[in-house]
């Protein structure tokens, strides 16, 4: 399992502010490389050039290809086999949480992120643990 300062984390988030925030927060906790994409298409392009990816943070509500649709194609991507994929979203109604669970996400981080718990959550996800925190 990669150490955090060696890990490459891929963030797929269409909202500019939240994308910047995710990048900054990951940098603060010492992630090796943080790559931010604004759509699934961009992500697929970027993946060509990336080494192994330790974690994918995927926003569920995006125009066009949303998180659920992306999940399937990402799972099949050769570079991402064995990579944990966690959902990040402000949609925390029970129905949505259930949907994410059914879809098979490895983690669920509710927005707004909890600044204090964030480091632990990311480290555990990198470790292959399931982190489910809708609130």
């Amino acid at each position: 399992m990669p150490e955090i300062n060696e890990a490459t984390i891929l963030v797929i988030e269409d909202d500019r502010l939240n994308a910047a925030l995710a990048k900054k927060m990951l940098q603060i906790i010492g992630a090796g490389q943080v790559v931010v994409c604004q759509s699934g298409q961009e992500a697929r392009q970027v993946l060509e050039e990336l080494p192994a990816v330790g974690l994918v943070l995927l926003d569920l509500r995006m125009p066009g290809e949303d998180g659920y649709m992306l999940l399937q194609s990402l799972r099949n991507h050769p570079k991402l086999s064995g990579t944990p994929i966690a959902a990040t979203t402000a949609n925390v109604m029970p129905y949505d949480v259930q949907q994410a669970e059914i879809a098979g996400f490895d983690g669920f981080l509710g927005k707004p992120f909890n600044f204090d718990r964030f480091p632990t959550q990311i480290k555990r996800l990198l470790n292959g643990e399931r982190v489910w925190d809708p609130r």
């Binding site: 909202d15 939240n18 910047a20 925030l21 509500r61 402000a90 949609n91 927005k111 707004p112 600044f115």
Partner: peptide, 21 residues
């Protein structure tokens, strides 16, 4: 309510956490 909740939480993520940073 669910929609609103989602719409309102999204910007709050930036507000709360950037302020903290």
């Amino acid at each position: 309510v669910a929609n609103m909740s989602h719409e309102l939480r999204t910007p709050l993520n930036a507000i709360i956490n950037f302020t903290r940073i």
